[in-house]
């Protein structure tokens, strides 16, 4: 069996599109968790981003407005989560689940009018000269805006967390909220910012699905990607660099599954569909077994903070 260059290129291109939504959503959650907040509502925020992005792009005809709407919708859904867990110190696990259930329901309700409508696709950027290069051109220089944005955001988050004062404060809040509070930082305000950022990025990830991956609206179209993004954050040991690698590895495994199916190997389609979930479980087990020093979760992850006065 020979695989020609164009087939390989097609596979690599699909891997990029499969990885980007995961990377975006997981990057947001990474920042949220670094601030000590566990938001299990990623799936809900993603699916809201997907429906909002689709709806706005379709009604305005402008996919970039759709991208903005997706981010806003994700952040808007994150707001009640922030209010409950940060201001009312509600249980983060339960509130995150509520957010997912609400997002799935609300997106279904909003999206009902859009089922079956052809969407607006986010254009691939064309850089004259560079994107015309053989093989690597379309791969590296012919992607859409969100692909570049996801990589740029990964670098920015890494710089922010480990080379900026604000990032240091955010990590301090996540690792020891009592000390951060004693030093005069507003734990609640830092966490609010992190939660809204996480929501916006989850929304972007969802928007990528309905604007670029498959430009249409299907109910529950995130299909568990929000949960996989949560697993990727654990897998990355809360480090942006490893998150990029993890997201792309994950995208690759998923796409290779479909590729194998395309070769006509006698494997049930359901088994290949189950592959991402099974891979997630295996990855979680592997990473949890061999967690090294400095790879631990933020110490205050999931813990509520009530300032004592």
């Amino acid at each position: 069996m020979t695989i020609d260059a164009s087939a390989l290129q097609a596979v690599l291109l699909t891997i990029v599109t499969a990885s980007t939504p995961l990377l975006l959503a997981a990057l947001g959650e990474l920042v949220t968790e670094r601030a000590g907040v566990l938001n299990l509502g990623v799936e809900g925020m993603m699916v809201m981003g997907a429906v909002a992005g689709f709806a706005v792009a379709l009604t305005t005809g402008n996919p970039y407005l759709g991208v903005v709407a997706a981010a806003l919708a994700g952040a808007a859904l994150a707001a009640p989560f922030g209010f409950l867990t940060l201001n009312l110190v509600a249980n983060q696990v339960a509130t995150g689940l509520a957010l997912t259930l609400l997002g799935l329901g609300l997106s279904g309700l909003i999206g009902e009018a859009f089922v079956g409508q052809p969407g607006v696709r986010l254009a691939k950027l064309h850089i004259p000269g560079l994107s015309d290069l053989p093989f690597v051109g379309p791969l590296l220089f012919g992607q859409d805006l969100l692909v570049y944005l996801s990589i740029a955001l990964a670098v920015a988050v890494w710089r922010f967390l480990f080379a900026s004062r604000a990032g240091l404060v955010l990590r301090a809040v996540g690792d020891n909220h009592a000390s951060a509070h004693a030093l005069g930082y507003s734990v609640v305000r830092v966490r609010w910012a992190a939660v809204l950022f996480g929501g916006a990025l989850a929304g972007l990830g969802g928007g990528y699905l309905s604007l670029a991956y498959t430009p249409q609206w299907i109910e529950n179209m995130t299909a568990g990607r929000g949960w996989i993004a949560l697993a990727l954050v654990v897998f990355s040991s809360w480090r942006p660099g490893r998150l990029v690698i993890g997201a792309y590895l994950f995208g690759a495994v998923t796409i290779l599954g479909f590729f194998v199916q395309g070769l006509g190997v006698g494997v049930p389609a359901q088994l290949l569909s189950a592959l991402p979930y099974l891979v997630t479980v295996v990855a979680l087990v592997a990473i949890s077994r061999r967690r090294g020093r400095g790879d631990a979760a933020p110490a205050c992850l999931g813990k509520s903070f009530v300032p004592d006065r």
Partner: peptide, 12 residues
């Protein structure tokens, strides 16, 4: 779908 929205709102 409204029922699912209610369920989510209720948990909140």
């Amino acid at each position: 779908k409204a029922a699912r929205v209610f369920q989510g709102v209720l948990l909140f």
